[in-house]
Design a protein around this nucleic acid. Structure first.
Lengths: 313, 313
DNA sequence: GTTCATGGTTTGTCCTGGACAAAATGTTGA
DNA sequence: TCAACATTTTGTCCAGGACAAACCATGAAC
């Protein structure tokens, strides 16, 4: 049982699946077809992956999420993969030098584990910019930066956790001050499918919706599709919004959204967004796919407009 | 790929894995060994599970989480399984009628999905009782009640989620108003081991510590043991506190705590608590095991006392 | 020049049935 | 009562074959 400690850094296939998001079957079939990754075997003949292999797999995973194909990536060395990622990673030529400075400062606090300073810096920016601007201008790009850095092994697990936790605190507090007593339409239900681990995307959406005065109910992560349907119908919600992190397999997302759309009453809109949905718009008729958080206020306004039109024809 | 829609209500194996948390391999091996679930096959020979099978699988899963064994469960019909779940929910006789009334009211709001009323009721109680009393007197017992009800199938997933989310909001907001700028000793690091899904226990601990003026840093859930050690050492923490929900296998908890205690410097205390640790105290020398949240303030005072004594001998 | 159908290729997921170690349970002796 | 050992249960892993959906390139039609 202690073998993961005895074999320093070597990971069994289940851990690799967890860490990279690549299914066990996929890992085995890659080995068979491409010859990578070729893990060593323990005394029982089971695969043991080296940290280097896992790192490379993470890079490949990330690039596949961006639309590249495995065959073209698997032969490359980690350095080349890293370069590809940098090129793809939104041309992070940030024109706003002030914002870049903010990012640098915050990243420094994260790296040095200065939680108090981190909290204060975020809080200050929130106060200055307002919730929605703070989300789209700071939190969303920072999530990207932190996520990238973590993938590249440039940030420790602990540091990523620290960042996530502090942002969550700030956002939850900010949202709960907004939400005082709005019962306005539309009523939005917010959640994720099972297996989704990341609550931050959900919170960002909630933070974008709350200031618009809509009634937004978050169920947190991991609600089974059938339960989403039942609750949305019973609660007379107008919109069901589902969020997908980049780690979520697009296939599962599309599957779940299709089946949800099919069983959800036509009167309830289905919204979905997040990095896990890149390039799936065409496959999901009847589902509104968001490319970015900034579209949310406009979409809400649009919903209200057509709701009003429907009332007075 | 559209089969899940064409076969109404029939789910492919990946969807069942998603909905029940049972691995595909486990589903196949149960079929082979016990003859349940025996899904029909689609035109391609792939398994298609009925909703009834999935429901029964969910019940079995819950009972297994409670410590029962598959062989004894799989032959039973859903009704018997439900009854077993009811029996497991421990009878909790509460002597305080006022508190019981609060619980009843809150449970009613949860059942009716009245999120706004739920939030307000909790907020009100928090204001009246103060954070620590609110945790030990309301939140902790309510968690138990809600957890039991969910286990028995007496509460929907959605309702449990709603409750959890609202409590989290309340607690996070309350904590962040307490934490303004305390840098007082002891410095406590708070987290869980990987595979732990529940953040609420962590938050309750944080809420018990914050009003004592200690510096409490939560890393959220799922931090690998090695990273906990590294971060605690580098950050010069005084105490590392780890929380375990009832679903966490006690054996894993004991193992992890032992290995953490062995690698952590002797000067850093290791605290652990939560339902997942029932009856393990003796096996863990050097680890302070908490039976209840109410012990926390006293333990903090004790730590401060002995720290002072160490300075002035 | 853009859209649409076509056919070939790539790729992820599913299958069977065997194997084994960790966990749980039962048994024995101090 | 507890510890050590034997046995059963149970989840996860493995190999290697199969197949359909997703992707890509080519050419035809508007």
């Amino acid at each position: 049982m202690n073998t993961p400690i005895l074999a320093p850094g070597g990971l069994p296939i289940a851990a690799v699946e967890r860490d990279t998001g690549l299914a066990k079957d996929t890992l085995r079939v890659w080995e068979r077809r491409y010859g990578f990754p070729l893990p060593v075997r323990d005394s029982n003949g089971e695969r043991v992956y080296s940290p280097e292999q896992v790192d490379k797999l993470r890079l490949i995973r990330r690039l596949i999420d961006q639309g590249m194909r495995p065959a073209k990536l698997i032969g490359l060395d980690p350095q080349a993969l890293g370069q590809l990622l940098e090129e793809l990673g939104s041309p992070r030529a940030d024109d706003d030098p002030e914002r870049t400075a903010h990012f640098q400062a915050i990243l420094k606090f994260v790296r040095l584990h200065l939680h108090e300073e981190l909290r204060r810096a975020l809080q200050q920016l929130l106060m200055k910019m307002g919730l929605q601007q703070f989300i789209t201008g700071i939190v969303a790009p920072l999530n990207h930066i932190v996520g990238d850095a973590w993938l590249r092994g440039d940030l420790e697990v602990v540091e990523e956790h620290l960042y996530t936790e502090q942002v969550q605190n700030i956002l939850r507090t900010a949202i709960s001050t907004q939400t005082s007593t709005t019962r306005e339409r539309p009523m939005v239900m917010l959640t994720t499918f099972p297996d989704e681990q990341h609550a931050l995307g959900l919170l960002m959406v909630e933070a974008m919706i709350a200031p618009e005065g809509a009634c937004c109910v978050s169920l947190g992560i991991q609600t089974p599709v059938e339960d989403i349907r039942a609750a949305a119908t019973a609660g007379r919600f107008d919109i069901v919004a589902v969020s997908f992190s980049s780690a979520y397999p697009a296939r599962l997302a599309v599957d779940g959204l299709r089946s949800l759309r099919a069983t959800l009453p036509a009167g309830i809109a289905l919204w979905a967004g997040g990095a896990g949905l890149r390039g799936t718009e065409r496959k999901l008729p009847g589902v509104k796919i968001f490319q970015s958080l900034e579209e949310i206020p406009h979409a809400l306004a649009e919903w209200r407009h057509s709701a009003k039109a429907a009332l007075q024809p």
